[in-house]
């Protein structure tokens, strides 16, 4: 019986020295048995929840822009990366909280600038054109980040405690940062739903997504609403990038993977539906976490993308979308 080393990124969430040896390798038969105890189960569950929530925040960013413009911003993952990177750089000069706040503001400005320079003045561009433009933007942002910050892997310090501090919940040892991620996500979702329901700006944005022409006739400046939706989703992405940075680390190219997972989650929940995105994110995160016991770590990405493909083929309107409403839209 020997100690099983856990996959690398799980180490960032859970300190493996806390683990009792649960994996037994029988040398004579060469088989590997994982005894799924209640303890291990809750560890995997929390890992899944953490990653699921991160994907959900990215998916919410997709949904906001999709709702007001009908386009998918392929550069959404880059906002997450930019948020993390700016906060890490600013944290060298100022304490954590103002650094994060400033990073979010800077990313929001970048999001607004991107919309104003590249998207605002196009009249009724085709979807193919928008896809290619946003893909080009994501490449450009990534390359600028590469030349600005280099290839190195960076991270913010833990908000509370340090790398080895842990809290015991349901017999699982988890890092306090996980609670930060979950908490921030809950706050974002609550504030967003309040914002879209009770503020006039939120109501105007919803009006634009429901019927752009009618909203314009009512005196709403639809173009400003699009700019604002880019700012909002850039800000949410940047905040997510800051909160997750201590656990997942930030690198110039970390946006692409997140964008694809985020899109998977957005489609899984039904495009445009932020509440469903949280549920779908948790589902995907948990499936991914438990898939580690079955398939090698290297194929983990392939699993979530396979889920994306299956969902696209079987239920393109998402798990929680109604098929009647889906009949009106084109996939």
């Amino acid at each position: 019986m020997r100690n099983f080393s856990y996959p690398p990124f799980y180490r960032y969430i859970f300190r493996y020295r806390n683990y009792p040896a649960r994996v037994t390798i029988y040398p004579e038969s060469g088989t590997l048995t994982v005894q799924m105890t209640a303890e291990l189960f809750s560890q995997y569950l929390f890992a899944g929840i953490t990653y699921g929530i991160i994907y959900a925040i990215v998916a919410i960013g997709f949904n906001i822009i999709y709702n007001t413009t009908g386009i998918i911003n392929f550069a959404q993952g880059e906002f997450v990366m930019l948020g993390g990177m700016f906060a890490i750089t600013l944290n060298n000069f100022m304490p954590l909280v103002p650094a994060i706040a400033l990073a979010v503001v800077i990313t929001m400005i970048i999001g607004a600038l991107i919309e104003m320079i590249f998207i605002r003045w196009l009249d009724s561009p085709s979807i193919l054109r928008m896809i290619i433009i946003t893909i080009g933007l994501s490449i450009l942002i990534r390359e600028v980040a590469l030349h600005f910050w280099g290839e190195g892997v960076r991270s913010l310090p833990y908000f509370n405690g340090n790398e080895i501090s842990s809290i015991k919940i349901f017999s699982a040892q988890i890092s306090p940062q996980v609670l930060w991620v979950i908490g921030v996500c809950l706050i974002i979702v609550t504030l967003l739903s309040l914002f879209f329901r009770f503020t006039s700006l939120g109501l105007e944005m919803r009006a634009c997504s429901a019927n752009r022409l009618a909203a314009t006739l009512c005196g709403i400046n639809a173009k400003n609403m699009v700019t604002f939706s880019f700012m909002l989703s850039a800000g949410i992405g940047a905040l997510a990038g800051c909160v997750m940075s201590p656990i997942t680390y930030t690198q110039y190219d970390c946006g692409t993977g997140l964008a694809i997972k985020g899109f998977t989650v957005a489609v899984l929940g039904g495009l445009g539906n932020s509440m469903a995105a949280v549920a779908a994110g948790l589902l995907l995160g948990i499936i991914e976490a438990f898939s580690i016991g079955i398939v090698p770590l290297a194929f983990q990405d392939a699993i979530s993308i396979t889920i994306l493909l299956i969902i696209l083929f079987v239920r393109p309107h998402g798990l929680f979308g109604s098929s009647e409403a889906a009949g009106l839209t084109e996939f």
């Binding site: 489609v267 493909l309 996939f331």
Partner: peptide, 10 residues
């Protein structure tokens, strides 16, 4: 069978 964003992502 998919179109637009869905085709691109798939």
């Amino acid at each position: 069978k998919l179109k637009g964003h869905y085709l691109a992502m798939a």
